[in-house]
């Protein structure tokens, strides 16, 4: 029973971790809570349903399921990245030197817009994922792990490892330099604007994968899922230490585990409240998070 909850929590947690990476990377560079990031994930879930639906009617799914899924994910990543890119250019870039709260309010505006945009274009009712992945599963230490759960955990792990490797490349180093000091980065010839765009694109791409995975896992999506998941992923990012990439991964997994065990052993009605309670507790006890650095404000 407990181990089953651990597997469920790990599945959920790796999705939170993937979304949390987007929050933490943007915060690391712009010190902005990109409130609309959860909506990108929601777009990803819808795009997964839309494209897989198209491929199913085309007959591609029947011909080769892996190819159809692969193309769906690629297209979802492409469109989500395009949305992430546009969002930054339209809603945040003009506010780069504005008071701190202006971009946050703008982000809330983007979030409301995207939610209602999807509601209007896709309808207010739940949408169903066009393919049911089988209930085939592995037995593993008294727990049942479905193939889908296994794939979600595996894909998330691969994405996190790739992001970690990316950090070591030239581009990744430029990104870290920009996060530390934008002025200095610009002085050594880094194009800060494109690095910021790249951050949004990568974050949105990750959110797209998370969206498609969740849509296939639960089978149902609606236009509210972005808000809830966004808050939870943000909690994960803060829990791990906002701005820290390993922190976001760790925070996501811890949060997933707390939620699934909490729902099983304490109360499932308050499942969504755990994230908020944890968020408030961390912010009060250790606002810098588990892996975050403590920074003193300069006078």
């Amino acid at each position: 029973m407990l181990f089953q909850q651990v597997i469920n929590g790990l599945t959920l947690g790796s999705v939170y971790a993937i979304i949390a990476l987007g929050y933490t990377m943007v915060y690391g560079i712009l010190e902005l809570i990109n409130f609309a990031h959860g909506e990108i994930y929601m777009l990803g879930a819808y795009l997964g349903i839309i494209f897989l639906g198209i491929f199913t009617t085309m007959g591609l799914t029947a011909y080769s399921l892996p190819l159809a899924v692969f193309l769906t994910v690629v297209l979802a990543i492409f469109f989500c990245s395009a949305y992430g890119f546009t969002m930054e250019k339209v809603a945040y870039k003009p506010l780069r030197n504005a008071p701190r709260l202006s971009p946050l309010i703008s982000a809330i505006g983007v979030s409301i817009f995207l939610q209602n945009y999807v509601m209007i274009t896709q309808g207010a009712t739940d949408r169903v994922f066009p393919y049911r992945f089988g209930e085939k599963h592995l037995h593993f230490m008294n727990a049942e792990v479905t193939w889908l759960q296994g794939s979600i955990i595996a894909v998330s792990a691969i994405l996190m490892i790739s992001l970690h490797m990316f950090q070591k490349t030239r581009m990744g180093k430029a990104m870290r330099a920009t996060a530390q000091d934008k002025t200095m980065a610009a002085l050594v010839g880094i194009n800060v604007d494109s690095i910021i765009s790249l951050t949004f694109v990568i974050g949105a791409g990750l959110a797209a994968v998370a969206g498609v995975m969740v849509a296939s896992y639960y089978g149902l999506v609606n236009h509210f899922i972005g808000y809830v998941a966004g808050i939870k992923a943000f909690t994960a990012a803060v829990l791990g230490g906002i701005g820290s990439i390993p922190g976001a991964m760790l925070g996501g997994i811890i949060l997933g585990l707390i939620e699934s065990t909490g729902a099983a052993y304490i109360s499932s009605e308050y499942k969504d409240a755990y994230a908020f309670v944890i968020l408030i507790i961390i912010l009060l006890i250790k606002p810098s998070g588990i892996l975050g650095r403590h920074t003193e404000e300069k006078v």
């Binding site: 809603a91 003009p94 202006s102 809330i108 505006g109 983007v110 409301i112 939610q115």
Partner: peptide, 13 residues
């Protein structure tokens, strides 16, 4: 709400 969302962004800018 769609208009409210766009409005907030435009107002901030």
């Amino acid at each position: 709400m769609l208009i409210l969302g766009i409005g907030l962004v435009l107002l901030m800018i």
